[in-house]
Amino acid sequence: MIEVEHLSKLYGSTSAIADVTFSVEPGEILGFLGPNGAGKTTTMRILSGYLPATSGTAKVAGFEVHEDSMAVRQRIGYLPESPPLYPDMTVEGYLNFVAQIKGVNAGDRPQRIQSALTRCNLLEKRKTIIRKLSKGFRQRVGIAQAIVHDPPVIILDEPTVGLDPRQIIEVRNLIKNLAGDHTVILSTHILPEVSMTCSRVAIINHGQVVATNTPESLMTQLMGSSGYELEVEGEFAAIQQCLQAVSGVKTIEPMLTDLLPQNRLKIKVVSESETELGSELATALVSHHLKLYEMRRVQASLETVFLQLTTEETPVENVDEVEPSDAAIEGGTPNENADL
């Protein structure tokens, strides 16, 4: 449904994306994942026909986005980074306007608008002036305008930005329900979003796609090894020496944290394969008279994969510096403009 081949975009001499290639099958949800400034928005804009690419081709439903722009425009719904709303219109009036410029027949319009309002949970706000809506509602109106004409391809640039947790869940369910009838491509820098909503992930960094796969196989492929977090009393050198003797241990690093009592260290141990190392690690520590206070198995998450792929320094160290789960969310949106 979407085929992108060797797509590049230069702004002056700076390259926003370089040689990006991926494809999306009909009915699939592709998550476009990358840190701010990686080129997500640029790619989305090229796909929507808003920006021309410097080189390469992008085809939507068989039409080249630049050459057959009108044909592509008829087949896509697009939510830009900031929802394109007219503050002086009512939600319903706005959706009616969008349905008109997207070429929905007058007869079908009321039903399409009704359906978009229902899907985005906007029914009680249909008569409200957009200016008076909160950010979360505006974002939902933005999504509603992208689906109001029932396009085969839906492009969503950061659809859950600015929503509260409950709304985020609603929007994710909404997007999941779009799959099948629609082909969806969504960009995000929030990792759980991808594993929850997308059937496939493309990870983009510095304008290049570094991996494309299903979220599950990405995780198994790149994090075949499992890890343990230990809290131990003693010198790092001694602990390291003791643990290195255990067979199957790949890396041992201290983790940075200030919340520990004196003399205690948090240590991350990564094993080479899927083997269970827990009992061996504990036995080794105890036999060396090191006091073990906590041991926890760390689940491989998409987040670690993501950081491994997008961080240039030796990856695992950085994994430790970032607290899991919130790290990506805190990245926030402000600097996304850098890649406009």
Binding site: R45, S48, G49, Y50, M70, R73, Q74, I76, Y78, P80, S82, P83, P84, L85, Y86, P87, V98, I101, K102, G103, Q145
Partner: peptide, 14 residues
């Protein structure tokens, strides 16, 4: 300023 040009520019309208 509103970003709605992006809507118009990606809609099937000249």
């Amino acid at each position: 300023k509103r970003g709605t040009l992006e809507l118009l520019a990606t809609s099937p309208i000249t």
